[in-house]
């Protein structure tokens, strides 16, 4: 809105179009999700649930599953940020030029390994706690997008801007924090958003190692031949992933520095 107020004619028109589209997205996404969930609710209500089904499909189980999934995703994303952002900054410094390709290769492997395999490996070899193992696994899985977002974000900063900043006597440190990082934010946030969606979506795998989440409804329903449970679990997981993406989108809009 402020951008619209100070913009010239061109940016004002573009800004208006963009803000219209944005508002549509802000409202449309949760509305669509709500409609889907309501439809599922009504459908389940209309069905005669047998004993097993009513044990899997009830408010308490669904609530627990949602919280578990959100918890794992949030911790995993937080862990990823703490590791990947500083690492990304370090790897774009001139002194790290030699090790950068090696670390990038490692991060690529992290994402290349099948998530489920990674999860079992961590669970069996390292941590015998389902949730914790899942958090670690998801975090490793999500490092790459954040790392890449940080590095690309920093690398695309106009060299002229950095040169001017250094030439005016800003220290390397303040150039990083007051110029490079703010200008890297939009791309960095895209990486974070990807990581968030990735962890929320893949967190269902935690069910395999006793980590709960909507995966439990899916696996349980599958094992016991109850497709309705599978459907409810899938919708729950999808809802969380879509909402995570939605929140990520809003965060990108809000945190993007003005003037970019």
């Amino acid at each position: 809105m402020t951008a619209v107020a100070v913009g010239g004619l061109d940016s004002r028109v573009v800004g208006r179009e963009r803000s219209l589209l944005r508002r549509l997205r802000y409202v449309g996404v949760p509305a669509a999700v709500a409609i889907a969930c309501a439809a599922m609710y009504l459908y389940v209500q209309s069905q005669e649930l047998d004993n097993i089904e009513s044990r899997i499909i009830n408010a308490r189980v669904i609530r627990t599953a949602a919280f578990e999934q959100i918890e794992i995703a949030l911790w995993a994303t937080a862990l990823t940020l703490v590791v990947a952002v500083p690492l990304g900054i370090a790897l774009t410094r001139p002194w790290a030029r030699r090790v950068t390709p090696i670390i990038i290769a490692l991060a690529n492997i992290g994402q290349g390994v099948p998530a489920i395999g990674l999860l079992f490996f961590i669970y069996i070899v390292l941590i015998r706690n389902g949730s914790t193992a899942a958090i670690l696994g998801m975090a490793i899985y999500a490092v790459l997008p954040v790392l890449r977002g940080t590095m690309v974000g920093l690398q695309q900063v106009d060299r002229g801007v950095v040169k001017a900043a250094r030439g005016m006597g800003m220290s390397k440190r303040s150039v990083l924090f007051r110029v490079e990082m703010p200008l890297a934010v939009p791309i960095l946030l895209t990486g974070v958003r990807t990581a968030l969606v990735l962890t929320v979506a893949t967190a269902v795998l935690a069910a395999f190692i006793g980590g709960g989440t909507f995966g439990e409804l899916i696996i349980g329903g599958q094992a016991q031949g109850r497709p309705l449970a599978v459907a409810v679990g899938s919708l729950g997981a999808a809802t969380l992933a879509i909402l995570a993406d939605w929140i990520g989108g809003i965060a990108e809009d809000l945190l993007r520095p003005k003037g970019l």
Partner: peptide, 18 residues
Amino acid sequence: HLRRRMGYVIQQIGLFPH
């Protein structure tokens, strides 16, 4: 500190866009 005693203008200008 030395650079703060000298103005510096370059072709790319390098204004801070944010």
